[in-house]
Simulated scan of single mutants.
Amino acid sequence: MTSVDTHDQDAQPGRQEVARRLLDSSETLSYDPVTEVDWETPLDPAYHGASPEWSTLYGTSYWDELTPEQQRELTRHEAASVASTGIWFEMILQQMVLRDFYAKDPTDPAFQWALTEIADECRHSIMFARGAAKLNAPAYRPRRLAVELGRFFKTTATGEAAYAAILVAEEVLDVMQRDWMRDERVVPFVRTINNIHVVEESRHMKFAREETKERLKGAGRLRRQYNGLVVAIASYFIVTSMVNRDVYANAGLDSKRAQREAKANQHYKSMLRSSCSGLMEFLDSAGLLTTASMKVYQRANLI
């Protein structure tokens, strides 16, 4: 028996209107990183790669012992690691969205917006890759377990699980990068990259929120419990993969001590929690912030 996609038949006017507004916004305000970012000026080591307050070591005794040069070098490697993690998840995102809209109505504004978002993410991934290289950092990749779980997730996640996980990754990066793009201590080309990403990702977050709410219409308690846990587990691996443990050795630090102090750094944990306050309110309102999922978010320092 051929199944009927009731999602396409329900609540279409509102969903189509949101998609049309996003398409209009994309036409009005989008950037080309090739021309907008200053790729030619050599890296100035007098700048940070990210706001120091977002460093995993900021607020620790080890941070206080570092010279200003070492602090800047560390933040440049951490920024490159966050960019590399962003590429990893953007590739997951693109595949989930493309799979979701496979063989659907191409005249639907939501279909067209989905392709627009995928095009945005392709440009963002190239932008992040060039930015990480300009920071003189190596390719930072998530741990093998995270990579394989991501491979499974992108292949199987559907509906609200896919879109809520997309939202988590985008929300955490959004708050972080809003700080970086305004911070004059951060190297100018990174500030430009962050500004482009913040502007364009705001539309992606709007779409992810709308899709999450749409897919949850009529969902029962068991489904919300299950997908709430799936999203929380995905969030855990996204957030814990942002800063690769190799950044410390590559920045010339004592890696074991740095990892130990970063793991216990209450300041960094507080920054993560504050960046996710709005996200947690949304997940709670959607019925996805369950008792089981809250334990996972607590372990990831998101709540």
Rank of each mutant, 00 (worst) to 15 (best):
V230F: 06
K263M: 08
A232D: 06
D246C: 09
Q259M: 14
S255I: 04
Y236T: 04
N244L: 08
V230L: 05
K256M: 06
A258M: 02
Q225E: 13
Y236W: 15
A219K: 09
I233Q: 07
K217E: 13
A249G: 14
V247P: 02
R257N: 02
A249Y: 07
T212P: 01
N250Q: 08
G220Y: 08
A251W: 01
V247W: 00
V230R: 01
K213S: 09
R215V: 09
S270H: 15
L229W: 06
R257I: 04
K269Y: 05
M271K: 03
R224A: 12
L253W: 00
A208S: 13
V243M: 08
S274K: 12
E210P: 00
S275M: 06
F237G: 05
Y226L: 15
I233A: 13
M242I: 05
E211L: 07
L229P: 01
A262F: 02
M271P: 00
K213F: 11
I233E: 02
R257Q: 07
I238S: 01
S270M: 05
A249I: 09
L272F: 12
E210F: 01
T240A: 12
I238Q: 02
K213W: 12
R245S: 14
D254S: 14
E214F: 11
K269E: 12
Y226G: 09
L216A: 13
V239M: 03
Y236I: 03
T212F: 04
A258T: 01
I238F: 10
A208G: 05
H267Y: 07
V247K: 00
V230E: 03
N250K: 05
E214V: 04
M242H: 11
S241P: 14
K269A: 15
I233Y: 07
G220T: 05
G228E: 01
A258K: 00
L229V: 13
K269V: 05
L222C: 11
R273E: 14
K256V: 15
Q266T: 13
N227C: 08
A208I: 00
M242K: 12
L253G: 00
S275L: 10
Y268R: 10
H267S: 02
Y236V: 10
Y268M: 09
V239K: 08
E261M: 06
V247Q: 04
S274E: 11
I238W: 10
Y248C: 00
F237E: 05
K213H: 15
Q259A: 11
Y226M: 10
Q225R: 13
N227A: 03
N227S: 05
R245Y: 14
D246E: 15
V239W: 14
D246A: 14
L222P: 02
R221C: 02
K213M: 11
Q266E: 15
I233M: 08
E261W: 06
V243S: 09
A264D: 05
R223S: 09
